[in-house]
Design a binder for these strands. Sequence first.
DNA 1: GATGGATATATTGGCTGCCAATATATAGCA
DNA 2: TGCTATATATTGGCAGCCAATATATCCATC
Lengths: 113, 113
Amino acid sequence: MKADAVRGHLDGLLLAVLEPGPLHGYAIITAVQRRSAGALELRTGTVYPALNRLERTGLLRSSWDSTGERKRRRYELTDAGRRALAEERSAWQAFTAAIGSVLDPAPHPGHAG
Amino acid sequence: MKADAVRGHLDGLLLAVLEPGPLHGYAIITAVQRRSAGALELRTGTVYPALNRLERTGLLRSSWDSTGERKRRRYELTDAGRRALAEERSAWQAFTAAIGSVLDPAPHPGHAG
DNA sequence: GATGGATATATTGGCTGCCAATATATAGCA
DNA sequence: TGCTATATATTGGCAGCCAATATATCCATC
């Protein structure tokens, strides 16, 4: 998978892995990696600024998790974030349909043949 | 569809619309638009440099079409272009599988419940 | 014969958005 | 004391597409 591949779809990825429940940044990275079977290896320079931005725009909320060990920032979806995730999913459907139909055109469906 | 959406997939689109037969640049743009049901509107500033690049790298070959009317440059796939198209298609499959599996994870298939 | 739109090709400058590199710090193991 | 994994953060760079612009022909309309 080429490095730049997630361009334009990053927000959806981050929101999606946070859907089941809160995670901290590092765990978000490993979750994306795991769920994509190793295909997507996001960089910290990609993820942390993005999380920050998503919090600024109200799609995520964060809190410092001090339950014991290392300091972690725990991110969770807001209601707006859940709505945005739904939009990202339908945008993804539209995107793959558009590119897919050019890449592999359906051979004239409909009107009997 | 956001303007920047084709980023990273442009070459595949151009190669794909040329698969059935040669086209000139303007027709390539309208073909992409038609095959995507209007979702993808490529710009000349996107397409012409890309066609040029694809010719330089040997995936396309071009010739000036002087059969009558307006001057047109006719592009067609080379053998390398056909191979590249096949690669673009499998890369697209891998890409959509990767993003898709993060965006809509399959709920634990296999190993019985 | 002038205007305007569709067809057709081409180039330049700019910006978005992700990556690579780098920095810092803790914890556990050898 | 050194190595690896965990954990967060920032900076600089640049690939790649778009917007804007330029040119030219053909055809319809006025």
